[in-house]
């Protein structure tokens, strides 16, 4: 009888523990942070907008109509008006989300993969390799980010893929720095020594212990970098170095809109707002992610 109650109590504890675990699960922790949840929601909406652009857009994004140029919002069935060629602004913003998201994510993935690799090698092995890699990264960092991207764009030429490469390469040193710093602190931890004493090879130590413990700041930095990459793409397009002209991109729309700031301020404002909301939501999400990723942190 006594034993039964003891095991019953144990089961009850287990139940309570499981409930507490659920409370502390990754998604719940993330969504409990209201701002992060908002960022997450906006990002989901953006992704769906980009995927289903043809169904959401009211007009084809490249369709010109010289009889309907520079219309205000709501005029003649154009939700957000038209630009100087008579193209529907709403549809172009919707399609522009595709470019922004593709460039933002692809460029950051490119930069993160190569940057982290260099950073891990640099931080883990140290010595001469470290010195060589980090001096090259310093050299790249000495260029202002956007200047480096401009130089790379003039070398590669225009086009979506080249924008991704240019922004991706410009992102490498930042990631290398972040990862190296993290690896330097993680590799001194006792559990790395333990793993080495168990007979683990360097590759196992790096991929099973060093990287997972360095990943939290990396992910946070990456989400912020996505926002940065979207701005870079917009800047490049604004300077006429981004995607080819007829393609709708927020940056190029902003550039076209700047000529009509007095006459039609909403043209530039709308594309600018699109960039602002996207970048803001990604940053908010990134902040929430950092807190949720720490298994020790209870929110």
């Amino acid at each position: 009888m006594h034993n039964e109650t003891a095991s019953d109590r144990e089961l009850l504890y287990e139940e309570q523990y499981k409930r507490a675990q659920k409370e502390q699960s990754f998604m719940r922790k993330l969504l409990r942070n209201k701002l992060a949840a908002f960022g997450f929601f906006v990002m989901i909406v953006l992704v769906f907008t980009a995927i289903f652009a043809p169904w959401i857009a009211t007009h084809p994004p490249h369709q010109m109509d010289v009889t309907r140029t520079l219309l205000g919002p709501g005029e003649m069935g154009h939700l957000l008006g038209t630009d100087s060629y008579g193209r529907d602004t709403f549809s172009r913003i919707i399609y522009g989300a595709r470019i922004s998201l593709i460039v933002g994510v692809a460029a950051v993935v490119f930069g993160a993969v190569f940057g982290s690799l260099l950073g891990v090698i640099s931080g883990y092995f140290g010595g001469k390799i470290d010195a060589i890699i980090m001096r090259i990264m310093d050299g790249m960092m000495a260029f202002p980010f956007i200047l480096l991207a401009i130089v790379l764009m003039t070398v590669f030429g225009q086009g979506l893929m080249n924008v991704i490469f240019a922004i991706g390469i410009a992102n490498i040193p930042g990631f290398a720095r972040v990862v190296r710093g993290q690896v330097l602190s993680v590799k001194e931890a006792d559990y790395i020594d333990v793993t080495r004493s168990l007979g683990a090879k360097n590759t196992r130590i790096i991929f099973h212990h060093v990287l997972p413990n360095s990943i939290a700041p990396l992910i946070v930095y990456a989400t912020m970098a996505v926002a940065g990459a979207i701005i870079s793409e917009a800047s490049l397009s604004f300077l006429g170095l981004g995607v080819q002209p007829p393609t709708a991109s927020w940056g190029s729309m902003l550039q076209e809109g700047k000529d009509y700031l007095v006459l039609n301020p909403e043209l530039a404002t709308i594309s600018g707002l699109a960039i602002l909301i996207t970048v803001l939501s990604i940053n908010l999400f990134g902040d929430g992610l950092r807190d949720a990723l720490d298994p020790k942190m209870k929110i």
Binding site: A189, D190, Y191, D193, V194, T195, S197, L198, G199, H209, P212, N213, P295, K296
Partner: peptide, 20 residues
């Protein structure tokens, strides 16, 4: 292979277990 036979228990029980 020799390391299989020699194991170590470290001083700090907090730092010697990978938190992830």
């Amino acid at each position: 292979t020799v390391r299989k036979n020699i194991q170590m228990v470290f001083q700090d029980p907090y730092a010697s277990l990978d938190p992830r």
